[in-house]
């Protein structure tokens, strides 16, 4: 029993470190500047559902999915990196006027961020997919396989909780704060995306 729990905890912490929910929600705040708390929660829920779908597909199909579609995780890494790069660039240079808060204009047309870049690659990225696959490959018997599923479910639950909390607290974030936050985290995100692309390219290079 203790062994089982330890195994589950190991899986969970492995996944937690690769997808790091705290950083994810921080990025989420950065990319939803100008949203109200309700709109944020709406977007987050949609993104979470899609992310859960992606994770489920990966869990069911396993490695076969890459053989069918014909991409490697390194390819996903590059794609995710490029998506994040564009996101970071808009976060750094977007001109969402802070002065607009008083005018109360809400009919601003925004692009839907819930699928890309929220679900993929922010919540479920190449790292999460590959570590889930590794966990699945490491599982030797049905019981361990079950724990992999359980760990993935727990991670999604953790994400749900984190997103719920951040949406709740974002009520008190002033627009100025979110803009500054977006600019600063955009810089970090840009570095992260470059890192992803570099990792992907390195993976493709012959050893």
């Amino acid at each position: 029993m203790v062994e089982d729990i330890r195994y589950l905890l190991a899986l969970y912490s492995k996944l937690f470190v690769t997808c790091s929910p705290p950083i994810t929600v921080a990025l989420f705040i950065g990319m939803t500047q100008g949203y109200t708390a309700e709109e944020r929660w709406e977007t987050a829920r949609k993104g979470l559902k899609i992310a859960a779908g992606i994770l489920l597909t990966v869990l069911i199909c396993g490695n076969r999915i890459f053989e069918i579609v014909g991409v490697a995780t390194d390819g996903l890494r590059i794609a995710g990196g490029l998506i994040l790069c564009r996101l970071a660039w808009t976060m750094l240079h977007s001109n969402i006027e802070i002065a607009d808060e008083t005018s109360g204009e809400k009919s601003v047309k925004r692009e839907d961020i819930s699928v890309v870049p929220l679900a993929f690659p922010t919540i479920v990225g190449a790292g999460t997919i590959s570590s889930t696959l590794i966990c699945k490959a490491d599982a030797t018997n049905t019981k361990e396989l079950l724990y992999v599923w359980l760990a993935a479910g727990l991670i999604m639950l953790t994400f749900y909780l984190f997103f719920y909390l951040i949406c709740f607290f974002s009520r008190w974030f002033t627009p100025t704060f979110t803009v500054i936050f977006a600019r600063l985290s955009g810089l970090l995100l840009l570095a992260m995306s470059v890192q992803l692309v570099v990792c992907g390219v390195m993976g493709f290079l012959p050893k």
Binding site: S20, H93, L187, A191, V194, Q195
Partner: peptide
Amino acid sequence: LLRLMGIDMNTFRVAGGLVLGK
């Protein structure tokens, strides 16, 4: 923060360079 996010200093240079260049 960079270490926490798994960002290498070299990639941060590339990113910072991009921003500065812009």
